[in-house]
Amino acid sequence: MMDLTQKQWVKHAVMHPVEGFEDMRWKKSGSLKIALFIILLLFFGEIAYGRLYGFQFYISYDKNFNIIPYIVRSFVLFGVWTLGNWAVCTLLDGEGTLKNICIYSAYALIPYTVQLYLNVILSHLLIRDEMVFMDIIKIAGVCWTAMLLFSAVKSVHQYSFGKTVFAIILTVAAMFVMLFLLVLFLSLIQQVIIFISTLYTELSYRARV
């Protein structure tokens, strides 16, 4: 049984928060292409949520547009989560490979992504008094994604409930460490670039004499 196409597997995993990922693992299914496509959709969803929201709910500062926060909120956070989870769970006897963690986590983000698009569309149809519908959708999306993410970690590494909680806490800590190092690294690189550019300026002044 359970001979589904890759697209059907996506539906199965999302619709069965408890068993879906277990089935997927048992069938060794899941596509990296679809996973990356979901993250791309998440990225565009974040942008739409920030910029195309209905005017009666939210006013965006549209004098300038900085894409970095949206990249961080989708690609960087997802990448750090995947790497962090892999790094932590390799030490904790997890069975998941980097590829599988990536696929399962991306599938788990589907409800959240759908919620983003749904709310953007609804924000152009509803008025402030009806905002509660959007809140419900948002809460449902976030909770569903949280549940799926938990289930994804649990089945990809074949952990017990308690160990999954422990692994997730450690993963979040690892994410913080990685982000901290990333910021440190970026500012260091900036210093180096400034140093080199100053050196170049200095040299170019000397060379002219």
Binding site: G54, F55, Q56, F57, I59, I127
Partner: peptide, 22 residues
């Protein structure tokens, strides 16, 4: 009203105008 409320950053007026327009 929606057009001008959007230009004025007046979410409240926009909300009312949108309700009427809908």
């Amino acid at each position: 009203a929606m057009k001008y409320a959007k230009l004025a950053d007046a979410g409240k007026i926009y909300n009312k105008a949108f309700e009427g327009r809908r």
